[in-house]
């Protein structure tokens, strides 16, 4: 009999242990699933904004930081409540498809081309398109995200505009990882890569990869907030998703975005855009 009391003691312990893990927090409808890109999390912006939102509204946010491609795919299946992404063409696909509604402009920063300090392809004073053509002509190593993220989508668009098909070329490699890790690999392999400015600034000190090209209108990086369509997916937390989207374009948050990063990096990482007329990347 001793054995059984031991066994039941063990089971009781197991149950008690498990009970401590049951959702003790707010009920399900209080949770908002935010699918977003890695840059908003890796730059630390969300660490500052999410606690503000939670304190103001009582919602608890589950931030799933993945590439914009995956974030939009989650929206398409109704597995998120609200998206904060930067892949305009894919976003429009989501709206046409009916998975997302009420797409609103939040902020922008820009993409930059970084690479080894000796700049083997010689990118000085060229346009973005010429830079890529030069990299291809010099067969200089280029590290692509290759992960369907917003940055990857932008990179592919630029290659297309440059008339270069880099896929399968020995000088063109894909990391399949987030921006931070891709920058680290590019630094290690002395490769060129396309990065959003926010992640780059946050990592700059550790990389030793100077900015070799910036400022072209074609390199605009625009972030939108999109609510997942509750008419299509009844399980979506519509009120919570709407509340977060409203929060992101609110005056207070836009001011916070304007100042974010100045203290740490000497320049802002994002520029607030809410309420401005919708313009596409590259036309501003």
């Amino acid at each position: 009999m001793r054995r059984f009391s031991k066994l039941s003691g063990f089971l009781a312990l197991l149950l008690a242990f498990t009970a401590t893990l049951l959702p003790a927090g707010p009920p399900a409808q209080k949770a908002v699933i935010l699918a977003t890109t890695t840059s908003t999390q890796d730059s630390g912006l969300l660490d500052e904004l999410i606690p503000m939102f939670e304190a103001q509204t009582g919602y608890s946010v589950k931030t799933i930081a993945v590439g914009s491609g995956q974030a939009i795919a989650m929206g398409k299946r109704g597995e998120a409540d609200v998206l904060l992404v930067h892949s305009p063409d894919a976003e429009k696909g989501l709206l046409v498809d009916g998975g997302g509604v009420n797409r609103r402009l939040v902020m922008h920063n820009d993409f930059i081309l970084v690479g080894p300090a000796n700049d083997p392809a010689g990118l000085a004073k060229l346009s973005t398109i010429q830079c890529l053509q030069r990299i291809a002509a010099a067969k200089a190593l280029f590290m692509s995200r290759g992960d369907n993220s917003g940055t990857h989508a932008m990179e592919l668009k630029l290659w297309k505009a440059a008339g270069v098909a880099p896929d399968g070329q020995p000088w063109y490699q894909q990391s399949g990882l987030g921006m931070g890790q891709t920058l680290a690999i590019a630094a290690e392999k002395k490769a060129y890569t396309l990065s959003d400015r926010g992640t780059y600034l946050a990592l700059r000190k550790k990389l030793g990869l100077p900015i070799l090209h910036e400022g072209d209108a074609a390199l605009m990086n625009v972030y939108h907030v999109i609510e997942v369509n509750p008419a299509r997916f009844p399980k979506v937390n519509a009120a919570g998703g709407r509340a977060f989207a409203d929060f992101m374009v609110s005056k207070a948050v836009q001011n916070r975005i304007k100042d974010f990063g100045i203290a740490t990096y000497g320049s802002p990482l994002f520029f607030p855009d809410a309420g401005l007329p919708e313009v596409e990347a590259g036309r501003r």
């Binding site: 959702p23 699933i33 589950k62 299946r77 997916f233 399980k235």
Partner: peptide, 16 residues
């Protein structure tokens, strides 16, 4: 997933 076979449990993104 919410729309998956065990979605009614509501435990995705929890320790459980």
């Amino acid at each position: 997933w919410r729309n998956g076979p065990l979605g009614f449990l509501g435990i995705l993104y929890t320790p459980a």
